[in-house]
């Protein structure tokens, strides 16, 4: 059997298995919801066994499907595809730009490249500012203790989450937009730089430009920071043992955390 046929069989099997897994996931979620909605103190041994018994068949089929996947890969092994090279476009552009002497390029190319860089900076600044601004209301709301109370704990947290999550979604959305816009700009600049390099006009002389080393790459700096963190870490642990912090951890850990297991 050809590699392609094998791959096709694996793909079809994978899609069927995906549907099965998603179905089982939805079944579990619906069963839990259905138990919850069945009355007060709904989680009893009987109700759980009744609800989960109903989904036993899809679960067994799914387990059989997973095992079948293993057998399939044994019976029809497919060679893994070659690892594809993946570089961040910005890093690739940086490398390319290092080979380009902008001052020796023709006016139009140099202006186009400079414009792209300015455009990118503007996009980053504006969208970054907007993303930051969207998170500030959520932050201000959440650090104000007046918005929280013990009596309405879950409601207050729900309110805070209802504010934090949309704000975060907007901020991340803006960030995604920034990334996409920057990506488009990088593509344009990369094309311009490549064209300039291909024309042979913008090449820098052969001299090697000493790369600026980052401070974090300096071993002395690195070991200094490590030493500092080690000292602070050890000091904090000793202070924690002395101020009862370690006993607090033990006190919590030896008791069942009702919050962790969804009871609290």
């Amino acid at each position: 059997m050809s590699q392609k046929t094998k791959e096709r069989i694996h793909l079809v099997y994978g899609i069927i298995l995906s549907v099965l897994i998603l179905t089982v996931g939805v079944c579990f979620a619906l069963s839990c919801l259905s138990i919850y909605r069945s009355g007060s103190s709904p989680f009893t041994k009987e109700s759980i066994s009744v609800h989960f018994h109903r989904i036993a068949i899809p679960v067994y089929i799914c387990i059989a499907g997973v095992i079948g996947g293993g057998i399939l890969s044994l019976a029809l092994p497919v060679t893994e595809g070659k690892v594809r090279s993946r570089r961040h476009p910005e890093d690739a552009l940086e490398k390319l730009s290092a080979r380009l002497d902008l001052s020796s390029c023709d006016e139009d190319t140099a202006t186009a490249i400079r414009d792209e860089r300015i455009r990118r900076r503007r996009v980053t600044a504006i969208f970054g500012f907007l993303a930051g601004i969207t998170l500030i209301p959520a932050l201000i709301w959440c650090v104000n203790p007046a918005h929280f109370s013990i009596e309405n704990l879950n409601t207050d947290i729900k309110t805070a989450a209802a504010l934090v999550l949309p704000c975060t979604a907007v901020a991340l959305g803006l960030w995604v937009a920034t990334v996409l816009l920057r990506g488009a700009s990088i593509s344009r600049e990369t094309a311009a730089v490549k064209a300039a390099l291909a024309s042979g006009k913008g090449k820098t002389p052969e001299k090697s430009v000493p790369e600026q080393r980052k401070l974090t790459a300096d071993p002395r700096f690195l070991w200094g920071v490590r030493g500092l963190i080690l000292a602070v870490g050890v000091l904090f642990i000793v202070l924690g043992i002395l101020n009862g912090g370690m006993a607090d951890v033990l006190g919590k850990a030896i008791r069942i955390c009702t919050e962790c297991i969804g009871l609290g």
């Binding site: 080690l230 602070v232 904090f236 642990i237 000793v238 202070l239 101020n243 912090g245 370690m246 607090d248």
Partner: peptide, 13 residues
């Protein structure tokens, strides 16, 4: 009541 030195120290280490 208690400054959380211990846990922060452990996480740092």
């Amino acid at each position: 009541k208690t400054v959380p030195y211990y846990v922060i120290g452990i996480i740092l280490l």
